[in-house]
Design a protein around this nucleic acid. Structure first.
Lengths: 190, 190
DNA sequence: GTCTTTATTGAGCGATCACTCAAGTATATA
DNA sequence: TATATACTTGAGTGATCGCTCAATAAAGAC
């Protein structure tokens, strides 16, 4: 009976994510979204409800794909090698709209406003940190790193270093590959 | 002949810096500034020219005070000890509007817009990196760390770690003191 | 005092913000 | 084909954005 939408919803969410990722929350206007998604205001609101609702969708997708990519890598390479490759991997990507972490950018922009999306970004960063901790624990169980270290603490430091690296990788005065290599090298000393 | 302004310009710049630092560029409206600085629009524009011009002033002041604080510390403690204390110092502060670096926040928010303030923030981060490199070089000359390392590379990594730490310190699920201690501990292994 | 010069005031500018909604259009079912 | 049910369209909402400017007030020079 009804009419079907002309757009591919999944594709639209990906495109919106890239736009939000690159330009931020305040930096992305409805006009920008309408242009990028080829959607008139009415269609946009029928499809997604609000700018914030779509932003939340894109955040979830961003985090979910990040976790999936990491865990796939871990199945192939094992925990330590995955952790060692991740720094180079996150700055290597060519088709990504930004080097910096979208969760961190969102949190930095919206935390002081007390915006719900900052809490969501925070939750997703916690989830990501748990993934890192799991890999550190597995590396310990496999005897790849010393068992005396606190995996949660290692994960927090590792995530912090990655955030710094990805922020630094946006700058053109910084040799991010060197920093990535040094972060990876530190893991061998554990 | 003329009339003197009723406000303390230096104080106003500091207050504006704190507001921008906490809420960001887009997150701080002229209404916010007028309220915080107790200035009507006309006075504001007579005094500072524009929101962006004032933001630039606050960025310069922020960086200048950061450099001054670091160099003062270096005169007291020497280069290596200064570098080791800085991580804890930047997250310890009580009276500061945010833990994250204002330069990094500005760059992250405005780079994709191609905004002049992003370039200015970038320049100031380069300046800060040079300070770190100078301290690493002095530490090498004093024999506090090995001479085989590239001081510029150490500085880039160190700054990156600090950026990550300061971003992480905004989160309440992260024990920033532990990360700060680990960053400092790494310096002893050089 | 008068004059000159600058600071202060606040209404209001055009532009843009996120968003709404009534009207028009296309499609699956009956 | 007729009807019901969405989807699409775009002009337009009130609110807020950064900012302007003419009017008014205050203070030093004479």
């Amino acid at each position: 009976m009804p009419r079907k939408p002309e757009y591919d919803r999944e594709l639209l969410i990906s495109r919106a994510r890239d736009l939000f990722w690159r330009k931020g929350w305040a930096g992305t206007s409805l006009k920008d979204l309408e242009r990028e998604l080829n959607l008139k205001p009415g269609s946009f609101y029928a499809a997604f409800g609000s700018k914030d609702a779509l932003y939340a969708l894109t955040l979830e997708r961003y985090a979910q794909e990040g976790v999936a990519r990491l865990m796939t890598l871990a199945d192939e390479l094992g925990p330590l090698e995955t952790l060692k490759r991740q720094p180079q991997a996150v700055i290597d990507v060519r088709d990504t709209p930004a080097r910096a972490c979208m969760l961190a950018k969102t949190y930095a922009e919206l935390q002081s406003r007390g915006h719900d999306l900052a809490d969501k970004a925070s939750d997703l960063m916690v989830e990501m940190k748990h993934c890192f901790a799991t890999l550190f624990r597995r590396a310990q169980e496999a005897g790849e790193i010393g068992s005396k270290h606190d995996a949660d603490r290692l994960a927090a430091r590792y995530q912090s270093d990655l955030l710094g690296l990805r922020m630094s990788a946006e700058r053109n005065d910084v040799n991010a590959a060197e920093i990535a290599a040094d972060i990876a090298a530190d893991l061998d000393r554990l």
